[in-house]
Design a protein around this nucleic acid. Structure first.
Lengths: 349, 349
DNA sequence: GTCACACGCGAGAGCGCTCTCACGGCGCTG
DNA sequence: CAGCGCCGTGAGAGCGCTCTCGCGTGTGAC
């Protein structure tokens, strides 16, 4: 009953089917160039014995693992505790599963972990990596680049120098921000404030840029820095009310920030959206739909981002396999993708 | 620059250090029974060559993979989109990392996926599995049991027949529920209602049991069924207000449900906690702290649950290795653990 | 009817590692 | 001073698979 059952090997299947190991191998791997009679016979033997190929043995010779590492740096709990990551992971999982790849999850916290991850990736345990590099000064991308593992990044990595061959998937943060602010302007609002996210993350920086695109010469006092958290949103909102009591709209860097801001506005007796209109970013359902009033926000398709990351990586891996090991970019390198965002109108603006 | 660098093998290290493969292997795996001089020499060679053992080759002979599968069945998006799962995963990751084990994530949705997971586990790709079996009728546990892979479950599996050797880690849902209801009673509330979770999950059933433990002969109309979602909470709350306008307290099966209930209460003009006291479950910070008023709730240490699951599994695996392959339970089988919960008092009760 | 060729299949090497086994050297005892 | 034992080391087999190579058979062309 326990695992003492000795797993059948290729050899065993071959014996039972009355063919050679090589033939069984061929059948198991697609069955090209084998007569149908034999294919049938081998399939039967496989079924009867419950044969499952030993991945270790296979990897040893093929040097492929059909496994992808997903690296998530999570210096703060926040990052991990929000649904963002979970949704992306789900998209990745779906895509990988569809291509018979496994998902090896590497969560890192702290510097020493980076070394560990670097070692792991360099160790050739996986065929590629999907990396969420959230901060500008993250040493991880550098490490990974050096490990020589094909990689796709989630979110635009924040290097100043854009190295060649760096592939990422991102939302159109800047465009989304522009849409949000334009929407507010379209409502006739003129004193539109912005509560930023953590500005060491490209998404926050990009959203701020989008805001500035529209509010070309905005009063700098209309911009308050926060960190993507509700608490940060509260603090920033108080600051803003203090500095600019006349503001009539707020674009928050994400929904959580917006929820904090809403709370402060309610406390201060302002009506939303009558006195002050509020827009968030993300369209995190548990948050955006439950605020009071429900939050107008910019939706990004997070699951699709994940799926796309996986697809890009798999394509690159496939390319590497098919075209033989050419060294430098062979022309059709997959390139980065920026997904569109859409404005979701609810009650807050 | 690219991955064309041929990874050094044991052989190469041995040559450089002027010893045999066997000796290098010994050093790499702990270095027992090798003279310090040689250990040093080998270490140096390893560093210089940047040698990393080939896990596939190693697994092939040791039959260990140092990898654990985490299986998450997620029929509903909800499950995945809440921080619960993420926190647990984090605990697991920490523990596995500390023991140099990898985390292979398997997300399933739908029936066909079950077969896939079963095949994967039976395929001997991983040493063990951590399984989140959320629903009573889930076929997954059965499948996994049959695959013969050492497994620890997250949350009490819902089989009527408690098979032997089933190990799980759970929160004290029933005890926590009792504490919550007692607290309400201690506040002088007498008409205490309960909004349940999805009752096909053991956690929901256990919390209901806890409620009943205290409210021994509760008015059945004080119990409304929901599904752990805010929307469900709203619906159930309306039902309850309709049926029992005189209720003075509500114990909700989780924080999300409670947040829905709070909204309905506010709409209906009831004051919380003055008119109606509310308690949740989970202590999900982004929710519990942000409700209005902040939610009194039952905290469970989710991350610790994850960590514990991993620890239990690793211990079991270790046991299997150390004591040779004895077949039936060797006495010191790790047994299930139920973690305590604590009541967190905030403003809502 | 003969020759060339293609196609299907089996034999065998080898991927990088671990682990058993046997051997040489040293220290200890009598 | 001889012999026994033990510790440290190397040689070599083999884990389960893939893949190249070559042989045999069947098919088509002349």
């Amino acid at each position: 009953m326990t695992d003492t059952a000795p797993r059948p090997t290729l050899e065993a299947v071959a014996a039972r089917a009355g063919v050679s190991r090589a033939t069984v191998s061929r059948v198991v791997n697609g069955g090209d160039g084998v007569r149908d009679v034999l294919v049938e016979r081998v399939r039967k033997a496989v079924d009867e014995l419950g044969y499952v190929p030993n991945q270790a043995a296979r990897s040893l010779v093929t040097r492929r693992h059909d496994a992808i590492a997903v690296v998530v740096a999570e210096p703060e709990t926040r990052v991990f505790a929000d649904p963002f990551f979970a949704l992306q992971l789900r998209g990745i999982s779906k895509e990988l599963t569809a291509h018979d790849n496994q998902l090896v999850l590497l969560l890192t916290e702290g510097r020493d972990d980076h070394a560990r991850v670097g070692r792991y990736l360099a160790g050739g345990h996986v065929d590629g990596a999907l990396v969420f590099s959230l901060h500008l000064d993250d040493p991880l991308p550098e490490l990974i680049q050096r490990a020589g593992v094909p990689t796709v990044f989630g979110g635009r990595p924040g290097w100043s120098g854009d190295r060649q061959g760096v592939v990422y998937v991102d939302s159109d943060n800047r465009g989304g921000a522009r849409a949000a602010v334009r929407h507010l302007a379209g409502l006739g609002r003129t004193r539109i404030a912005h509560i930023t996210g953590a500005l060491d993350q490209t998404s926050a920086a990009d959203r701020l840029d989008g805001y500035r695109d529209v509010m070309v010469d905005a009063d700098p006092r209309l911009i308050a820095e926060a960190d993507f958290t509700p608490a940060g949103g509260e603090r920033a909102m108080r600051e803003l009310l203090d500095r600019c009591p006349d503001l009539d709209a707020v674009f928050a860097a994400n929904d959580l920030t917006a929820s904090g801001a809403l709370r402060v506005l309610r406390e201060s007796g302002r009506r939303v959206p009558d006195d002050i209109a509020v827009i968030g970013f993300d369209d995190m359902l548990p948050v955006a739909e439950q605020t009071d009033p429900p939050l107008t926000t910019v939706r990004q398709d997070i699951e699709e981002m994940g799926r796309l990351m996986a697809r890009l990586l798999l394509r690159e891996l496939d390319r590497g396999t098919t075209h033989g090991g050419s060294d430098e970019a062979t022309g059709d390198t997959p390139s980065s993708v920026v997904l569109p965002t859409t404005l979701i109108r609810r009650a807050s603006a």
